[in-house]
Amino acid sequence: MGESALLASETVPAPNAPVVVEARGLGVAFETDGQRVNALTSVDLTIRRGDFVSLIGPSGCGKTTLLRAIADLQAPSGGTLTVNGMSAAEARRARAYGYVFQAPALYPWRSVARNVMLPLEIMGMARGERTERAERYLRLVGLGDFARKFPWQLSGGMQQRVSIARALCFEPTLLLMDEPFGALDEITRDGLNLHLHELWRRTGMSVVFVTHSIPEAVFLSTRIVVMSARPGRIIDVIDSPLGAARALGIRESAEFLAVAHRVREGLRAGHSYD
């Protein structure tokens, strides 16, 4: 992608695109040692098809909890939550989303290709198509030559790319990513961000992306959800003015810095120094 992409000003997803995730007054509480801790309170959020939504905030603000609630890995304690118009549990059973965890969570006894094929096997896809899909999605994340390797033979960044290929290969329309690049160095992270951005552009899927990093959130997102801790809640939702097509250079632009500034202000306002 060249600098010219910076000039292209496509509009971000249409405001009337179908709703993928809808949360109203959503709350999640944990019970620890008989004490009730509100991990998330009164969250209202609408995510539409084609959105790239980042959840950003300090540790303990419930961003991972929100993602896990959407994925039905965590039961809400209040409010309503729909995914593709269904309950989160129904959506999970309908295999509505792909999930990328903080760690690659690859199965070490499986080759890279067979790790990617895992969801396809579980979903009962024929062998021929499984192989073809694994090949295609490994190429997509730039690991076409590593199909026969095993996870331990790959670097951390490559392993995380395998886990992304694994989440994409059954072609979900919703991708949930929980700090997928948190453990990687800056340069690897830049590369993967660009990769992910192009992938999102090409496929038109919806992405919910949890991150700590302001530049990462601003670079990738059409909307940035700023959250605050104790109790976990949303304090600002920023619609990005940046166009749909972006290159890494955009991070020096005035528009980008303005959005980043607003995110930082939001985070600072929500930060309690206790």
Binding site: A71, D72, L73, R92, R93, A94, R95, Y97, G98, Y99, F101, Q102, A103, A105, Y107, W109, R110, L118, P119, E121, I122, M123
Partner: peptide, 25 residues
């Protein structure tokens, strides 16, 4: 837990969790 959560995101049957995760592990 992550490897188990992964199976849950695929809505994998208990038999699949056994044959594809617990047993090989």
């Amino acid at each position: 837990p992550l490897q188990l959560d992964l199976m849950r995101t695929y809505s994998a049957a208990p038999s699949a969790v056994f044959t594809k995760l617990r047993w090989p592990m």
